[in-house]
Design a protein around this nucleic acid. Structure first.
Length: 137
DNA sequence: CTCTTGACCACTC
DNA sequence: AGAGTGGCCAAGA
């Protein structure tokens, strides 16, 4: 397709960003996840950057106002999450909202995914009879 | 169509 | 713990 087609139709052509928004909307309150996780759940495990890129478009205001972008954090070692937002204001707001939801930040501003991490859409929608992991023992 | 830019992630020093 | 580098993929000019 041509480059013009790529830039056209911002309304009906939200691209796979919509997939990320869809996943983010599934994140329950008091819970957080990482860009890489959202990307993976969205079907693009290598597109972690675009999750943040897509989130950036949310703050502009609009139809995606119902997307809890604040629950999406960057990834930190040892299974932890951290605010990687460049905007000091946005980052402060994000943290404030998360703390209001009951999410505890570490002294370094990190969050323990073991306690507040989101297991993914499958965890919130156990309606699937399939077995994500072998049951037993 | 080509080049630049990202609210990133993982690895390495 | 902090900084630098490579990779990934798409949007904008």
């Amino acid at each position: 397709m041509t480059a013009r087609e790529q830039a056209s139709s911002e309304l009906d052509t939200v691209s796979w960003w919509d997939d990320f928004y869809r996943v983010v909307r599934l994140i329950p309150p008091g819970r957080v996840t990482t860009y890489g996780a959202v990307a993976a759940f969205g079907g693009h495990p290598r597109a972690a950057r675009h999750v943040g890129y897509a989130m950036a478009a949310l703050k502009e205001g609009g139809k995606n106002a119902d997307v809890p972008w604040q629950r999406v954090l960057g990834a930190a070692p040892r299974g932890k999450a951290r605010v990687t937002i460049k905007d000091p204001v946005g980052g402060a707001v994000q943290r404030a909202i998360l703390e209001a939801e009951g999410v505890a930040f570490d002294a370094l501003g990190r969050i323990d995914l073991a306690a507040f991490g989101w297991a993914g859409p499958g965890a919130e929608k156990p309606k699937r009879p399939t077995k994500p992991k072998k049951k037993g023992a």
